[in-house]
Amino acid sequence: MSTQPVALVTGANKGIGLETVRRLVEAGFRVHLGARDKQRGRAAADAVGAHFLELDVTSDASVRRAAELVEQADGHLDVLVNNAGITGPVRDPHDYTADDMSDVVQTNVVGYVRLIHAFLPLLDKSGDPRIVNVSSGLGSFALFHDPDRIESRAGTPLYAASKAAINMLTVRFARLLPHIRVNAADPGLTATDLSGDTGHSVHDGTDAIVAFALSAPGGPTGAFADRAGDLSW
């Protein structure tokens, strides 16, 4: 069993997930890099000194198997970073379908709950367990109603709704699991595939995620923040 702190980051073969893995490895964590694609996942893990974990957040069987492998390797989990997500289609509002919404929710919301459920027993074995849910300011009602914020003008309804759901899941789990610090991190507009390479660097986009992951015992729980600080819900 490893004596290092142990983290798992989902959707981590590129972009924000991969940068989060890299920074946690640099901080001294043993990191499981979760990804669906074996070839890309292994290459990414090798590049940053992490351990590849085949993981499809939409599959009960895949997530259960991943939890079994982490238990066998480490016996506990200190930090779970729920990052895997999709934007869904961008369409004329007349053309959005229930299937479009279902696809987004299955990955962005149900996937987070699936991971939390599967890994709670391992988090319970940590002396300082933390869950970081990667959310977005697009899920904030307050920011949507602020005309000076980009969140009032950008974002699809499907993706934004999924992130609003994640925000509520975060505060509810934080209250129901007082022994685990559960927080929501907004990367902001970050230059990745999902944003069409528009925005700040992935390093800047992971600042809030890493801050929550590395926060000392007694740190915040039930919080929502970006790299500049707390955000309005």
Rank of each mutant, 00 (worst) to 15 (best):
1 M>L: 13
4 Q>V: 14
6 V>D: 01
9 V>Y: 00
12 A>C: 06
13 N>T: 09
14 K>S: 13
16 I>F: 04
26 E>V: 08
32 H>K: 05
34 G>V: 10
37 D>H: 11
41 G>D: 10
42 R>C: 10
43 A>P: 10
44 A>W: 11
45 A>T: 07
45 A>Y: 14
50 A>S: 09
60 D>P: 01
67 A>Q: 06
69 L>V: 15
73 A>H: 11
73 A>G: 11
82 N>H: 03
82 N>Y: 05
83 N>V: 11
85 G>C: 06
87 T>R: 13
89 P>K: 05
97 T>M: 01
103 D>V: 07
108 N>Y: 00
112 Y>D: 12
112 Y>T: 15
113 V>Y: 12
113 V>R: 13
114 R>T: 11
115 L>M: 15
120 L>R: 08
123 L>R: 14
123 L>K: 13
126 S>W: 10
128 D>L: 04
133 N>T: 04
138 L>A: 13
142 A>G: 00
145 H>N: 08
146 D>A: 04
152 S>K: 05
152 S>P: 08
155 G>C: 04
158 L>Q: 03
158 L>S: 02
161 A>D: 07
162 S>Q: 01
162 S>W: 05
164 A>E: 01
168 M>W: 03
169 L>E: 05
170 T>G: 07
174 A>L: 09
176 L>T: 02
182 V>W: 14
183 N>S: 13
186 D>N: 13
188 G>E: 02
191 A>Y: 09
193 D>L: 04
195 S>N: 15
201 S>L: 09
207 D>W: 04
209 I>G: 03
211 A>V: 06
213 A>V: 01
214 L>K: 08
214 L>A: 10
215 S>T: 04
219 G>L: 10
220 P>V: 10
221 T>H: 07
221 T>M: 06
226 D>G: 02
230 D>T: 15
232 S>P: 06
